[in-house]
Simulated assay, not measured.
Amino acid sequence: MMSTLLHLDASARTRSFSRRLSARFASSWRTAHPSGRYLYRDLAAEPVPHVTEAWTELCDAVLGAGITDIGRYREVVRTPAQRAAWAVLAPLLDELVAADTVLIGTPMYNFSVPAALKAWIDQVTFPRMSLRGKRFVVAGARGGTYLPGTPRAPFDHEERYLRDFFAGHFDVPDVEFVHAELTNALVDPRLASRRDEQEASLAAALARMDEVAT
């Protein structure tokens, strides 16, 4: 069976550390799976719309009808507004269900995920379904360091949120996180003394991407 990788990037920067990490994974994965299928979405360059009232009506209709097969979701589409909502949602669900591996490149923004990624997450929670058996890999970048034991570790609501979401909503208990820490050491004078740590963290993250991908 052909393997499929769904690759999402959420950074507002076109030359970001999270994009560099996710690109490294994708390159290694494609080398290891030359006949595999590769799907890509740039959630920052082509934002997914936020959910609308029509989306909530579709979700309620699916739940009310007891439909568990995604292929039958279209049965509840009735109004023009619902058809417009479904036109946004359907390809996102198709990509997610088709993928064996889901790769998410995302920075930490304000201790959590970017709005572009949150919009995608909100769309595909329609309704709760089990994706157990699929691999989820998050390639992250943070301006400071949020490693366990560091002063800012309690403020890491990005990894905690994504772990809770994937486990609680998609039944995926094991998500691989690889972070480049201290990226602001390149621009913030207060972190200039930690430049070596930043470079070491990035090098380790890039190497880990190769390992996880293959």
Rank of each mutant, 00 (worst) to 15 (best):
M1T: 13
S3L: 06
S3N: 14
T4L: 09
L5F: 04
A12G: 14
A12S: 12
A12H: 12
R13W: 09
T14A: 15
R15S: 14
S16N: 08
S18Y: 04
R19K: 13
R20Y: 05
R24K: 13
F25L: 10
S27F: 10
R30F: 01
T31Y: 04
P34K: 08
P34V: 06
P34H: 10
S35H: 12
Y38D: 01
L39V: 14
D42T: 12
L43K: 00
A44F: 10
V48I: 14
P49M: 11
H50F: 11
H50Y: 12
T56L: 15
E57K: 14
E57D: 15
C59A: 14
A61W: 12
V62M: 00
A65L: 08
G66R: 06
I67E: 00
I67F: 03
I70V: 14
R72K: 13
R72H: 13
V76T: 09
V77A: 08
T79D: 04
A81P: 11
A81W: 07
Q82A: 06
R83C: 08
A84S: 12
A85V: 06
A85P: 00
A87G: 06
V88A: 04
V88P: 05
A90N: 01
L92P: 02
L93R: 06
L96W: 09
T101D: 09
V102R: 03
V102K: 05
L103C: 08
L103R: 01
I104H: 06
I104A: 02
G105K: 03
T106K: 07
T106Y: 06
F111V: 04
F111Q: 06
S112Y: 02
P114Y: 08
A115S: 15
L117T: 00
K118Y: 02
W120K: 05
W120S: 03
W120P: 01
D122C: 03
Q123C: 07
F126P: 03
R128D: 02
F136Q: 03
V138Y: 08
A139Y: 02
A139H: 03
T145K: 02
Y146E: 08
Y146G: 00
P148Q: 00
P148M: 03
T150P: 07
P151N: 09
P151E: 06
P151T: 05
R152F: 14
F155R: 09
F155Q: 13
H157T: 10
H157I: 00
E158Y: 13
E158A: 15
E159H: 11
R160Y: 01
Y161H: 08
F166M: 07
F166T: 06
A167H: 13
G168L: 04
H169A: 15
D171L: 11
D174P: 08
V175A: 07
V175N: 11
L182W: 01
L182F: 04
T183S: 05
A185E: 00
L186C: 07
V187K: 10
R190Y: 08
A192D: 08
S193F: 11
R194K: 12
R195S: 09
R195T: 12
D196M: 07
E199D: 14
S201C: 00
A204K: 13
A204C: 01
A204P: 00
L206W: 12
E211A: 15
V212D: 08
V212P: 01
A213Y: 05
A213P: 10
